[in-house]
Amino acid sequence: MITIMRRTALGAAFALLALPTLAQERSITVASTTSTEQSGLFGHILPIFTRETGITVRVVALGTGQALDVGRRGDADVVFVHDRAAEQRFVSEGFGRERRHVMYNDFVVVGPAADPARVSGGRDTLAALRGIAAAKAPFVSRGDRSGTHAAELRLWQAAGVDPLAGRGQWYREVGQGMGPALNTAAAQNAYILTDRGTWLSFRNRQDLRIAVEGDARLFNQYGLMLVNPEKHPHVKAADGQRFIDWLLSTPGQQAIAGFKIGGEQLFFPNAADAEPVS
């Protein structure tokens, strides 16, 4: 009896020990957004980076706000997100080393084919938002402090509409990632702001299609920051910096440009742009 219990205890101890040993390979943790992970971008570029450097990249995909929080707590080495204002705050608070532009894509407004707000086909995002609010047509918001959520709120503000007035009626905050929000919009025949990458790789579109695209206001810039090792000494600064440098280098930028879904390029490298349009 006691021998059996001892054996079980030993077995458990070994099993526990065995788990961390798998983590012995050289690796960095990147806090990023659901849009980059779920579109498949990382699945495309990370194997190339790992092949060149031997460094495994572990991506934790969250909303931009949460990803920055993970960086703040020191639980990631690199943050790769898309909310310029929040990123600048992150750097100015001293949590991130310098912020670098790495790539952009764009947002699109998608909505039901029936187009109850009659906004489809235009290029003017602000007019479309006003139309949706006026028609009280259902609109799904991420509501999760993500980069997309922040961009959406900026657009409403620019349109001069307070969507929160429609909260609980036509304005629906789901507090979830891009995919679940799209699932909700598809189920409710609602309009929604989404990044193009997630939209292109999204499989459950049902009646949704693009309503507004091509507006300069829909530009979506991604930034890249090393978590400041002075705040969190355990940060793998060298390997993290290596990842950043590679993404900004020609091979990295080419890898980003090479990621396509259905022949369509999803992300546009722009590391060379000193101060891109925003």
Binding site: T34, Q38, Q176, G177, M178, G179, P180, L182, N183, A186, S201, F202, R203, N204, R205
Partner: peptide
Amino acid sequence: ALETSKGDL
């Protein structure tokens, strides 16, 4: 959960 959120039901 991931595949659900990607809409690949």
